[in-house]
Design a protein around this nucleic acid. Structure first.
Lengths: 343, 343
DNA sequence: TTGTACGCGTTATCAC
DNA sequence: GTGATAACGCGTACAA
């Protein structure tokens, strides 16, 4: 009944039921073409012989792996772990399985991951790492969606960094801030986050507001970040003392550190400080004083990314032609909290 | 040269080089059995025809998927995202690929994930979710390693929760705390974290210390946690005012909330409060006052889990007999920070 | 050292 | 409705 490897196959079921392998296959893929009686016979046999399906064989025969590859920089940054969380959760909706690689920033390694993913015949790729240029990725001729990274030659889903920044500025305006400050790590022009820099400047210049941007490399460790922000805080206290400061910090990990520095200095958040962060990761809500933040709606980004990818997978199956990159934008939402809405 | 699907296979390479498919296969799997000259010829052909390997076919032929399945509760909790991070990173060391499912706590769904994983012929499973009892998992007769969950019938890797708690208590002792308090969410006897409760009680009773355990359901949201801890803090202030309090909080997310409550009340950490948390996730270091914490050495746990799983996979290949469950314990390390080491 | 022939477990294309 | 038969792409006895 079972072969040496103790693996029940269609052949075994076929022998047992006196049908052919074809009929067993149809039982799974086109059950409506069988009589109910025969369906029952097969169902019983499957049960009795304890049949387990083998998708590897299925893939080889019909070419559909239902695999999507993911290359993500790390899971240490909240944004990434949450977006992976949301992407993996789309299994319920779409049924695609995910092969996940963590990229450590080495191009060499990342190319290895790509080869491995291609070898497993992934149907599409979601890429969050920013190591390889999009032109190289486009040359894979594989359905592909980038999330929050350079996306000149490939499809992508991003949050509207420009609009989100405007929301933050408008909130700071509504609190009559007298100087607008932007704290950010350096970004390059092709990066989605660069839009935050642009938007901040645009807004301040349009409304003729006193403003300044602190843009510097913050370092990788918490201690480095803390020391950089300590220095920035000193400058702010020196140059803008006594006036209402609206501070927009790109990234709420930084914002949390900055807030903690203020609290350790004063024991409370001084009245002339108004803080808004970006991302709205849990730390914003859990900070000692809950931090106002621009939420990226990560669940939507993830869902749209998978949906867009699948639509491209299907498009390519029908006509394997070149697809124009599609760029989707998700609107962010301002979550006002205590660092701006004081009472 | 290429077939209709534009897929180069061994056949194509064979025709092109006038070797047989077998020789091409050997080029990859036993290159030493070819002359260097022929190897070069084949290498050139592979290059010229742009051959891409197909691991799906390979799997079907030799049965080795190099897939490991992972079922993890979520990536919202830092411990899980970090352990997934570390597990995925073992690709460098072992080459196994990971199929990841997020379990939402439904048994039904989890069984679906298991079936899916089995259909893809995973060679082993790492399970962190605690939805299904280990007896059911053991019945899969699949190499299996549990991490930080009930593990009566299956192999596991856990941190030494008992020893970690003792380390915490010893530190609090060294600061001459007069009352020992333990704040924890409820745990059940078969859960690894239950050992923290036991160890705390054992230590306090052995040393005849005044002690109390606050064990209550904290709720899922930050706001709920905050409200529970506010209440606990009130009780502590009421019952133990004026004496040195050593507080052991199981989980540094809770510890951070508790610390923030103290700082918002006093503007600083009062001298009679000594705090130690468990887990040492980034929040411990990044809290407004860095929190002393018992580190679980997640990197080691992840590595040992994968290593143990692979050893079981190999053992089963050699003699597919029943394997006694193996339980590995990783020693935690106390990371002293400002909430205990005051100056 | 190299080639032949068959197997892995399923799907697809025809016939019947 | 059902059944042969040939793919799918690679590995491996066994033979040469």
């Amino acid at each position: 009944m079972a072969n040496k490897k103790n693996n029940i196959t269609f052949s075994d079921i076929a022998k047992y039921t006196n049908f052919s392998k074809t009929t067993i296959s149809r039982y799974f893929n086109h059950p409506e073409t069988l009589t109910e009686q025969n369906r029952n016979i097969i169902a019983e046999a499957l049960e009795k012989l304890n049949y387990k399906e083998n998708k590897v064989a299925k893939i080889l025969a019909n070419g559909c792996t239902e695999f999507i590859g993911i290359i993500i920089p790390n899971l240490y940054v909240r944004y990434y772990s949450e977006i992976l969380n949301q992407i993996l959760s789309t299994y319920e909706a779409f049924g695609y399985k995910f092969l996940v690689f963590i990229s450590n920033g080495s191009k060499e390694d990342e190319r290895t991951y790509l080869q491995e993913l291609l070898a497993y015949k992934i149907e599409g790729l979601i890429i969050l790492s920013h190591t390889l240029p999009s032109i190289e990725l486009a040359n894979l001729h594989l359905p592909l969606v980038a999330v929050e990274r350079e996306d000149v030659y490939i499809s992508s889903v991003n949050s509207d960094n420009y609009q989100g920044t405007i929301l933050a500025c408008e909130n700071l305006s509504s609190h009559d801030c007298e100087v607008f400050l932007h704290i950010s790590a350096p970004t390059t022009r092709t990066t989605p986050a660069y839009k935050r820099v642009e938007a901040f400047d645009d807004y301040c210049e349009k409304h003729q507001l006193l403003h300044h941007t602190f843009m510097e490399e913050m370092g990788a460790s918490h201690e480095e970040v803390k020391s950089h922000l300590t220095h920035i805080l000193e400058q702010i206290e020196l140059n803008y003392s006594g006036i209402r400061k609206g501070i927009f910090i790109s990234g709420d990990t930084y914002a949390n550190v900055f807030l903690n520095l203020l609290i350790r200095k004063y024991g409370y958040l001084p009245n002339d400080y108004f803080l808004i962060a970006f991302d709205d990761s849990p730390i914003s809500r859990e900070a000692i004083i809950p931090i106002s933040s621009v939420s990226q709606q990560i669940d939507k980004i993830a869902f749209e990314a998978v949906e867009l990818l699948i639509s491209q997978i299907q498009a390519q199956k029908e006509r394997p032609a070149f697809c124009e990159p599609v760029h989707k934008i998700i609107s962010p939402v301002l979550i006002p909290r205590e660092t701006t809405e004081k009472n």
